[in-house]
Design a protein around this nucleic acid. Structure first.
Length: 671
RNA sequence: GCCUCCAUAGCUUAAAGGAUAGAGUACUUGUCUUCGGAACAAGUGAUGGGGGUUCGAUUCCCUCUGGAGGCACCA
């Protein structure tokens, strides 16, 4: 990478001045007139060197050894050193791999929707963030495992199952006006009837059941008592489910002891639980497909490499807490087992509740060592909403005591909470926006937009008039909706990813589904435009265009950069050398921006900041659009320059496509 | 009451302690519409108040104001 080599050169210069060479770093100036790279090292060293920063910067510049990388170095006002890289070096760097890292095993846990509840935009956010972080790690060459952790036991599930049994939910309340108006209008519907409904509707019904149960739990003490008992029963039911599914599963806890009374018949509870659980899991899979969540591993369990369930990891967490209770890490308090007070000012948290059941905290203590057992990770990243940041501090503190390696190598990232303009979402009150309805709404808006523009342009190829027209247009219609969905996903994901993580997001359709300016569709549009230009220029010969030096380095392992970089050195009649091409500042500007890709990706991955990728891609697309408006590429008269420009277009296309993939969505050919 | 996070243009936001605080949107005005207008160009407009550290502060510290979240048996 360019920065690595620059660091070597500067380290040499600074050690020539007998100064500390630590911490020589380069930034990418926003303004290209400040160079390709800039460093503030002179200002940082000026105090120790007892020199004024500007003088020091000048001395460093004088001591820079001869090299074939740098075109120009400037010491500027307060003490910046700006580096302009030779165009030939920029060109060569485009073909280098971004990774200088040792490959690591990285676990990324994200999305984490709870069975029995709807998949809302908060989950969508977590999914977008997690997927892009996973792909960033993959871009660096790491071995990434996508994990999903789902709460299939606990009070929220008890509320849902209670609602399934007692709710008597009328069909109209969860299908709305769209539902078929049959006899089951106000009566409530039977479980058998629900089974016959499409998956989406079943999940809507489950959502209502949860709301019913949660309300009862809060407002009706009698119901709350029942739900509590049902909860204990459900732990037992879930355990039986695991034993049945996996003969090797070893039960750690005897849940029967907690079941004081079976409020509902065991078989009934079991059927409702197992069926409802599977419904939501199937439903989530459909959404992952739309979102493009997909593991790279051939032996993945599904969209994710592995799905962890609370009902399973609870067992390990429970035994861990019991073990460390004896060692004094936890203490008993009011019948519950808690993390001891006043540890580094952390909150007291309950790990085993007073009924003897493990809470989320204990389950998490089981989960993380399990991840390590399976994946032996170098790094484990967990993505959740930031409302549980405090809780994670307590959890990670305790995890470090119990399993120092796992604790130290686990990072929690809290992203912002997604709010609706009316306030916080709540699945209890039904005031939520489901991920699926958002995708559908976005898709229909894209279709609307496509219909507006397609009349005047060549978006949809003209179909042959005649008898087959209807069938052809039906086919186009099908294509169109696939494209529309891709564009919609791009709009949604980009709007969620383009800002810093951690801030709350107030969700507004109009702003998040914008197709103009700094948006996902703008990037896709730019890619489409590139492809269109390339398509018109007979791109075949371009594919072989490469710089001579990168070929040389691939074959000979020699990193030296030839001053005479050749474009398209071997094939075809086009044999151009960069040094002989009469390129202009506009062209060079694009080349310089393209050369930043590797630095941007590396930084984004290191800082776990996908939004920096958005910023870069938008700048690149925007610069290209501006260039496009100024220069007619295909009408370039100088043939060599024209080929160079087409090569630039293909690189823009390639870079944007790679970048968009890292953000978690796909480019399209036409839109 | 205690703890954590946040405050930048009308709105949404960017900026490892660095250069003239960078964008999008909205508004005003243009370009052009025969390489795809989901475009391009120009203009208006911002660091909540007060202290401090520093050669230099949107960034770090203190304080005030305003907002969000958390403070044990939900996650």
């Amino acid at each position: 990478m360019l920065t690595t080599r620059l660091e070597e050169i500067f380290t040499q210069a600074i050690s020539g001045l007998k100064l500390d060479t630590h911490g020589v770093t380069f930034d990418l100036p926003t303004d290209l007139s400040h160079g390709d790279f800039t460093t503030n090292i002179a200002m940082r060293l000026s105090k120790n060197a007892q020199m004024n920063p500007f003088d020091l910067a000048q001395s460093i510049v004088k001591h820079i050894p001869a090299n074939d990388l740098i075109e120009k170095v400037e010491a500027i006002k307060p003490g910046f050193i700006n580096v302009f890289v030779k165009p030939t070096a920029l060109l060569s760097s485009l073909d280098l791999q971004p990774s200088t890292h040792k490959p690591q095993r990285v676990c990324v846990e994200y999305t984490d929707p709870n069975p029995f509840k709807e998949f809302h935009i908060g989950h969508l956010y977590s999914n977008a963030v997690g997927e892009s972080l996973a792909r960033l790690q993959e871009a660096l060459g790491h071995d990434v495992y996508r994990l999903c952790y789902q709460g299939d036991v606990g009070l929220h599930v008890a509320c849902s199952v209670y609602g399934m049994i007692e709710g008597n939910i009328p069909q109209s309340s969860f299908l709305g006006e769209g539902g078929s108006a049959d006899e089951a209008e106000t009566e409530g519907v039977t479980f058998e009837h629900i089974k016959s409904l499409p998956p989406t509707d079943r999940v809507k019904w489950l959502g209502k059941c949860y709301a019913f149960g949660a309300t009862a739990n809060k407002e009706n003490p009698e119901a709350a008592e029942k739900i509590k008992k049902l909860n204990a029963q459900l732990f037992q039911v879930a355990q039986e489910m695991w034993i049945k599914a996996d003969p090797k599963f070893k039960a750690q806890i005897d849940y029967k002891q907690f079941v004081k009374e079976e409020v509902y018949p065991h078989d009934l509870v079991s059927e409702y639980y197992v069926t409802g659980r599977q419904w939501t899991l199937d439903y989530f899979d459909e959404i992952y497909k739309k979102l493009g969540t997909q593991s790279k591993k051939p032996d993945a369990a599904g969209a994710f490499d592995h799905y962890y369930f609370e009902s399973a990891v609870a067992e390990y967490g429970y035994t861990t807490v019991m073990k460390y209770l004896e060692k004094g890490l936890f203490e008993k308090s009011d019948g519950a087992i808690v993390s001891t007070k006043d540890k580094n000012g952390l909150h007291t948290r309950v790990f085993i509740n007073s009924h003897g059941l493990p809470t989320y905290e204990a389950k998490e203590l089981g989960l993380n060592p399990e991840k390590y057992k399976k994946y032996a990770f170098d790094k484990s990243i967990i993505i959740t909403a930031n409302e549980i940041n405090e809780y994670f501090k307590v959890l990670l503190w305790n995890l470090k005591q119990i399993d120092p390696y796992v604790g130290e190598h686990t990072t929690h990232i809290g992203h912002g909470v997604v709010r609706l303009p009316e306030g916080k979402m709540s699945s209890r009150t039904g005031k939520i926006l489901s991920g699926e309805s958002l995708i559908d709404e976005a898709t229909s808006r894209v279709v609307e937009k496509m219909n507006l523009t397609s009349s005047s342009s060549a978006v949809i190829p003209d179909s042959d008039p005649g008898s087959s027209a209807e069938r052809v247009s039906g086919h186009v219609q099908g294509n169109k909706s696939i494209i529309a969905q891709k564009v919609a996903i791009a709009a949604i994901k980009y709007s969620l990813l383009k800002t810093n993580l951690g801030k709350d997001v107030t969700f507004s359709f109009d702003e998040s589904l914008s197709f103009e300016g700094n948006s996902g569709p703008y990037l896709l549009y730019t890619i489409v435009r590139c492809k269109s230009i390339l398509g018109k220029s007979k791109v075949e010969s371009l594919k072989s265009i490469k710089s001579e030096s990168s070929q040389g380095s691939a074959e000979g392992g020699d990193m030296a950069i030839s001053p005479n970089v050749t474009l398209s050195p071997t094939k075809g009649p086009n044999n151009y050398q960069l040094s002989t091409i009469n390129y202009q500042l506009d062209d060079l500007r694009l080349l310089r921006l393209l050369a930043r890709y590797d630095s941007v990706i590396t930084q984004a991955a290191d800082k776990l900041a996908p939004h920096t990728v958005c910023t870069y891609l938008y700048t690149l697309a925007s610069e290209f659009s501006s260039y496009y408006a100024r220069i007619n590429i295909l009408k370039t008269e100088d043939e060599a320059l024209k080929q160079f420009r087409l090569w630039l277009v293909s690189k823009i296309d390639e870079t944007l496509t790679k970048g968009v993939h890292i953000l978690g969505f796909e480019s399209v050919e036409k839109m």
